[in-house]
């Protein structure tokens, strides 16, 4: 039975087919897949779909139990420019 396409990243509305096609066409790492599709780069900062995006690229990435640094950029919660500038909310 044909699988209906569905959203993986709710914030940026990136679909499963889009992610799978991009990953297979470009042999992406999780980070590259995010940058190409914007999956995990929306309002929530990837907290919802990050494990799924990593799942897609897992086979292409490093073996388990390898030391890595995870690419997270602050702020890890959306903040206003006022707060970022040190002013009031």
């Amino acid at each position: 039975m044909n699988q209906q396409d569905f959203l993986v990243c709710r914030c940026e509305e990136v679909t499963y087919n889009e992610l799978m096609e991009t990953a297979s066409r470009n042999g992406c790492t999780a980070r590259e897949l995010k940058l190409r599709t914007r999956a995990g780069m929306g309002y929530c900062g990837g907290r919802t779909c990050r494990p799924l995006v990593q799942q897609i690229t897992k086979k292409l990435e490093q073996a388990p139990h390898t030391r890595v640094t995870l690419k997270y950029q602050p702020p890890v919660r959306p903040i206003s420019f006022g707060v970022l500038g040190g002013g009031e909310e």
Partner: peptide, 20 residues
Amino acid sequence: TELAAVAGCPFYLVEELGGY
């Protein structure tokens, strides 16, 4: 783990613990 990642902690993917 996002704050630990931002701080620059080294990570390991350990499926037995649920992730990185």
